[in-house]
């Protein structure tokens, strides 16, 4: 991480709060992610990290506070919001590939309908992306015919096809069989190396160590720590982080 304090943040959350009934799931969240930065969000389940990730492209609404992407405030419903979402790629835990469309169509739908690309051009770009994530030969199949790891790589290609400014990953490997986790992580590490701005909610500490610029530790709806990976894993400051790490790193 270079120390350009003056560079404006690409994603900026200021005093964000959200409640689910009586549960205060996001408590006064302040977070800045610079262009090209890879931020890994970790924490125990129920800590609000997925909600945080989903709030950034407004799949979850927030009660108060402000979220800015590339300087622009997140709009409410409507065309404006749709346009902004096109700039924010999202990869889900359960892949969510369009079940009735082929792999190729999954990747070209956004570019054709949202960006107005011709089908030929969209197909060409999609095939490039599918080759890059290693599923080019599966282009004509339906999502259900692919393994989980392949589906998730297609989902990454689908998000990349929109040429997003930032990519959000909401526990991208949590629904995968162990032998498929690495094929997805490899693609993500590649993206990080290419300079993509990424916010990754994950339990994969290996990925955090290898690719993250910063680790954000959340617990009970709050950001408890925000530090560099090595520092976080070797010298966690808070008791809660120490407790969390002792539970997951002993195995």
């Amino acid at each position: 991480m270079t120390s350009e304090a003056a560079a404006p943040a690409l994603v900026e959350l200021t005093a964000v709060n959200k409640h689910y009934g009586s549960l205060h799931v996001l408590q006064d969240i302040n977070l800045q992610v610079k262009r090209g930065e890879v931020v890994v969000v970790i924490g125990p389940s129920g800590s609000g990290k997925s909600t945080l990730c989903r709030a950034i492209n407004r799949l979850e609404t927030i009660d108060d506070g402000e979220i800015r992407i590339d300087g622009k405030k997140l709009p409410a419903e409507g065309k404006e919001l749709a346009r902004l979402r096109a700039d924010v790629g999202m990869v889900f835990q359960s892949f969510n590939l369009f079940a009735h469309k082929t792999i190729l169509e999954n990747v070209t739908l956004g570019p054709i309908k949202v960006k107005g690309l011709s089908k030929a051009e969209a197909d060409r770009q999609a095939m490039e992306l599918l080759e890059r994530v290693g599923v080019g030969h599966q282009a004509q199949k339906l999502p259900a015919q692919l393994s989980g790891g392949q589906q998730q790589r297609v989902a990454i290609a689908r998000a990349l096809a929109m040429k997003p400014k930032v990519m959000l990953f909401d526990e991208p490997t949590s629904a995968l069989d162990p032998e498929m986790i690495n094929e997805v992580l490899d693609v993500m590490v590649g993206l990080a190396k290419d300079g993509m701005t990424m916010i990754v909610v994950t339990h994969e500490m290996g990925f955090a160590r290898k690719a993250a610029d910063r680790v954000v530790f959340m617990s009970d709806g709050q950001i408890i720590e925000d530090s560099q990976p090595e520092e976080f894993f070797t010298h966690p400051k808070s008791e809660r982080a120490k407790d969390f790490l002792s539970k997951i790193l002993t195995h």
């Binding site: 889900f92 956004g110 949202v114």
Partner: peptide, 22 residues
């Protein structure tokens, strides 16, 4: 599944297109 609608919105499709295409 609700994830289908979320994925459609996440790639920038407006409500009507999410509905008619996905």
């Amino acid at each position: 599944p609700v994830g289908q609608a979320e994925a459609a919105r996440a790639i920038g499709l407006p409500f009507m297109q999410s509905l008619t295409l996905v």
